[in-house]
Design a protein around this nucleic acid. Structure first.
Length: 927
RNA sequence: GGGCGGGUAGCUCAGCGGUAGAGCGCUGGCCUUACAAGCCGGAUGUCGCAGGUUCGACCCCUGUCCCGCCCACCA
């Protein structure tokens, strides 16, 4: 291991430290899960959502990685045999598009290369991109078990995918069929329903035109937003009960452009009498509704498009036109024929390809499908009965809704990059051979003229097997038995259907077990305005830039290279005029953790990262202080908590108890925000702002016993909070922890220590907390006076005080040294409380109420006007509060119906407020 | 068309039946030997709107208006 430098500089610098410790952990084997058969620890397994090999990681991945790493490190420290399986996804269509774009820059298409060369090219890309991604995960501090890294196209994954496909086929759940599918004319592949995004509220035109009756007598008027599809019309439908059109029953219309008679069919399902003219054109080959109608009536399905979206040979004079040109052309021609019947604006939704962004064309095509209904039912059950828990819970409904309405999954893709479909077609007979091993002959007729299906599988097919394929499935391996089912599946809600639901279905089907027991869904990381990060908008924040720092020039250059528009660059320059300093992975992690994981949006702000960078520095300096004070002593952090006597020491242990309690609850309930906030506030607001300050007089004083217990408590609290923070800020906690003097058998790294718990490592001490509140109030009041009256710190104030309550008096007496240091004052006990109000005495100005039962006055306050203002403001506030409480107490129903404790508390509040008011009034009068 | 989520301090968001919170920002004062990436003070809210339930509502119910997202074969 590499020892940290001995001296601690004033500023913590993450850059060098983070790399050093990561290397130490990895080379020490701390990330490895144990396969030792004698290891009896319970296991905790989490499969990484494998990032796509489409480039480098973005902030969403950083967020995923952080959450997952916190879960894993926490479990590991709790004594679980923890396995975090890393990996990467081949991401079929996405990756192919990226590589094709590269080729385009060289003036090539994939067809120029040919399939084999192209795939080689993608593998090259994969090597680069994959390595970069794994490196980035390391930079984030991810404690993955690296030797187990999987790629979804590794040989063992290929085998798993094949096995899954063949089994489903043999079970009749995978089948081949010709139906209307979503066609991406740019990528020239079919898409699943999920890969089609609906662009809402697009303004379109509803276009009316007439078909003339074939017998020459009259016409029917139909409406469409897509006039070009009329070239594929093979029927016109009316409602069977529509009286207006009884005369049309059994008749035909003539197509104006192609030589075709079109039947008028009666269809109660398709036609809504109320809508439009009540006559519907039917294009079975290009509209889902019409497709179904065509099936009902045995209509001809005429495809009018080529695969690239141009018009085909069935479109007569329009052949060769692009589909949108054809739309215009058809309108013009109809108009020329006098068949147009007007048009109007129409709001509609447009289906777009998630990948290429082009408008998806419904087309008839033969594809492979999975019959989902039999798989969906068990997947619904395990969530209903709580075997799998989805967080945040409201997603459960969405999950159910989707599964209840599930459609068969189109799994074939007309791509080159992906898992080949293990199906072979026979030249001689119709038989389709689906096999685990490449066949040499047709399984039907034995003929050797067979040809493999050229398509590949949807990338999510292999992803669906991920939790168990990565552990050795289909073999019944020791690893699989030990680590499957996994526990947590942490991912983005946007792939709940794409991935999570499919893993549940596949897992149940193939292993008979749920693949995981908790689904943790996080929101989308956006820029600080809440806008989605996009290369074009120039608002992408690269995690590595945040960690390592980047100048504005570098940011701009990168954004430009990524294709950002001018406005995007401007935004970038305006928002980050100084670029990023190296904030470090810990600061970024802590920032991401601070956002509520149940929120749908994580609007990342650099300011916030800066805040947590500052927190890291705060922790650093607090440690620096603590270690400096310990340097000459024998004190070491021990595994047993000290039992101190002094108020400050007892208090800090009690606050530590509270912080650890909230932290543990938060980590268990997946409220990482609450867990991290509890530690943040403990460290900064309590440990640093109060405890460390109080430790100074204690350590400087002559009381040897107090010095001893303070040192013990100080080092204990520090060491404990470091362990608690380690899952969130792994690097800095290690950097500091290594310097903390520790017990004899201490482990070599903080990451393999025991995670602290409130009951063992801290101690709730209600009486210490109550007593400390008196001290805090006293110190706070004096500080306020000092600030309000511009009394310089160099000017020691003398505070005369009184309390009739023995308990409070003894607390204040006992803590005199502490208070006098914190408040920079001298405390003088005034035996006669009346003196504090005596205008004739010194106290004519700043009589101040400290808290119920304690009063104090400062004699030498300078500014009477300011004091009056302050008192009046306080008085007003108190009167408002008192008014509310008194109103409540004046309500007989309240006294009768409210729980006793609530009533008691209100009464107590009221009397305290009255006392306070009285004092303030007296003070005002004495001015 | 259906569903989900949100509207709380200038900004970004927690909270959720018992007297409104954080971070950042704003503001006054401090280079107090752990930390100026800091310390000590201070200001700031008709908790979207309207009803209802309740002794009591930011929190529960109903309605309503905005904003975002998801699902859906809306000629």
């Amino acid at each position: 291991m590499s020892a940290p430098p001995d001296e601690m500089p004033k500023q913590y610098s993450p850059t060098e430290s983070e790399a050093r410790w990561y290397e130490f952990w990895e080379s020490s084997g701390f990330f490895a899960a144990s396969e030792d058969p004698d290891d009896t620890r319970p296991t905790y397994t989490l499969a990484i959502p494998p990032p796509n090999v489409t480039g480098s990681l973005h902030m969403g991945h950083a967020c995923r990685t952080t959450f997952e790493d916190v879960l894993c490190r926490h479990k590991r420290m709790q004594g679980y045999n923890t396995l975090w399986v890393p990996g990467i996804d081949h991401a079929g269509i996405a990756t192919q598009v990226v590589v094709e774009r590269q080729l385009k820059k060289e003036g090539l298409t994939r067809h120029d290369l040919g399939r084999e060369k192209f795939i080689e090219r993608v593998w090259e890309w994969k090597a680069q991109s994959g390595d970069r991604i794994l490196e980035q995960l390391r930079k984030m501090g991810a404690s993955c078990d690296w030797p187990r890294t999987k790629f979804t196209m590794d040989p063992d994954m290929v085998r798993a995918v094949r096995e899954a496909f063949v089994r489903l086929y043999e079970e009749g759940l995978i089948y081949r069929d010709t139906r209307l599918v979503n066609w991406d004319v740019a990528a020239q592949t079919v898409l699943s329903d999920l890969e089609v995004e609906q662009e809402e509220n697009v303004e379109g035109t509803m276009f009316d035109f007439a078909y003339r009756l074939a017998d020459g007598d009259g016409e029917v008027v139909v409406s469409t937003t897509r006039p070009e599809t009329m070239l594929g019309d093979t029927a016109v439908a009316i409602h069977p009960d529509d009286r207006r059109y009884f005369h049309l029953h059994g008749k035909y219309v003539r197509h104006p452009f192609v030589d075709r008679l079109i039947p008028i069919v009666l269809d109660a399902e398709l036609v809504d009498v109320e809508l439009g003219t009540g006559v519907v054109k039917v294009t079975p080959a290009h509209d889902p509704n019409d497709f179904a109608t065509g099936k009902r009536h045995g209509l001809e399905e005429i495809n009018i498009f080529n695969l690239d979206g141009t018009m085909n040979e069935n479109t007569g004079p329009f052949q060769g036109l692009d589909r949108f040109e054809a739309r215009k052309a058809v309108e013009i021609e109809l108009s020329n024929l006098g068949l147009t019947r007007g048009n109007k604006k129409h709001m509609m939704t447009l289906p777009r390809s998630q990948r290429s962004g082009t408008i998806v064309e419904p087309m008839i095509s033969t594809q492979w499908f999975v019959n989902m209904t039999p798989l969906a039912d068990p997947a619904i059950e395990v969530v209903e009965d709580g075997t799998i828990q989805i967080l945040p819970q409201e997603w459960t409904k969405t999950y159910f809704h989707w599964l209840h309405n599930i459609q068969d999954w189109c799994i074939s893709r007309q791509l080159w990059w992906g898992h080949p479909i293990p199906a072979w077609y026979c030249e001689a007979c119709d038989h389709v051979t689906v096999a685990r091993e490449d066949p040499s002959a047709c399984a039907g007729c034995g003929g050797s003229q067979i040809r493999q299906d050229e398509d590949v599988l949807d990338t999510w097919f292999s992803s669906g097997l991920w939790p168990f394929s990565t552990l050795g499935w289909p073999d019944d391996t020791f690893t699989l038995r030990r680590f499957y089912p996994t526990q947590d599946m942490e991912t983005g809600y946007d792939i709940l259907f794409f991935w999570v639901a499919r893993m549940v279905m596949m897992g149940l089907h193939f292993t008979g077990k749920v693949p995981f027991t908790r689904v943790l869904l996080a929101g989308l990381v956006t820029d600080e305005r809440g806008e989605k990060m996009s290369k074009v908008k120039g608002n992408v924040i690269d995690p590595l830039d945040v960690i390592n720092g980047a100048t504005l020039a570098e940011l701009v250059q990168k954004a430009e290279a990524a294709g950002a528009k001018k406005a995007g660059i401007k935004y970038l320059e305006a928002t980050y005029p100084d670029g990023f300093v190296p904030y470090g992975a810990d600061a970024l992690r802590m920032t991401l953790l601070s956002y509520s994981p149940q929120s749908r949006r994580i609007a990342l702000s650099i300011k916030r990262i800066e805040g947590y960078r500052n927190f890291a520095n705060k922790l650093w300096n607090a440690s620096r202080y603590a270690l400096m004070r310990l340097s000459d002593s024998q004190t070491v952090a021990s595994q047993t908590r000290p039992e101190p006597k002094s108020l400050a020491n007892r208090w800090v242990l009690s606050r530590l108890y509270h912080a650890l309690d909230v932290t543990s609850t938060g980590l268990d309930a997946y409220r990482l925000d609450e867990a991290s906030q509890a530690l943040y506030h403990f460290v900064w607001d309590e440990f640093c702002d109060w405890y460390l300050e109080m430790s100074k007089p204690a350590l400087d004083g002559g009381d040897a016993a107090l010095v001893r217990e303070t040192e013990a408590t100080l080092v204990h609290a520090l060491e404990t909070v470091l362990r608690a923070l380690h899952p969130m800020m792994p690097h800095i906690t290690e950097e500091i922890w290594q310097r903390v003097p520790k017990w004899g058998e201490a482990p070599s790294s903080i990451m393999i220590t025991r995670f602290p718990t409130a009951l063992i490592d801290a101690k709730a001490d209600r009486s210490a907390e109550r007593a400390f509140e008196v001290v805090q109030a006293f110190v706070g009041s004096t500080r306020t006076i000092r600030a309000e009256h511009d009394v310089p710190k160099s000017h020691p104030m003398r505070i005369h005080w009184h309390s009739a309550e023995d308990a409070k008096r003894s607390v204040l007496e006992a803590e005199r040294a502490t208070i006098e240091t914190l408040a920079r004052c001298e405390m003088v006990f005034e035996a006669d409380p009346a003196k504090l109000d005596d205008p004739a005495a010194h106290f004519k100005n700043a009589a101040v109420f400290v808290n119920p039962g304690v009063r104090a006055a400062v004699p030498e306050v300078i500014d009477t006007d300011k004091e009056r203002d302050r008192l009046q403001r306080d008085l007003k506030k108190i009167e408002r509060e008192l008014g509310a409480v008194e109103k409540k107490l004046g309500n007989p129903s309240f006294l009768e119906r409210a729980p006793e404790a609530v009533v008691e508390k209100s009464k107590r509040d009221a009397s305290e407020l009255r006392e306070k008011r009285e004092r303030l009034e007296a003070a005002l009068n004495s001015l």
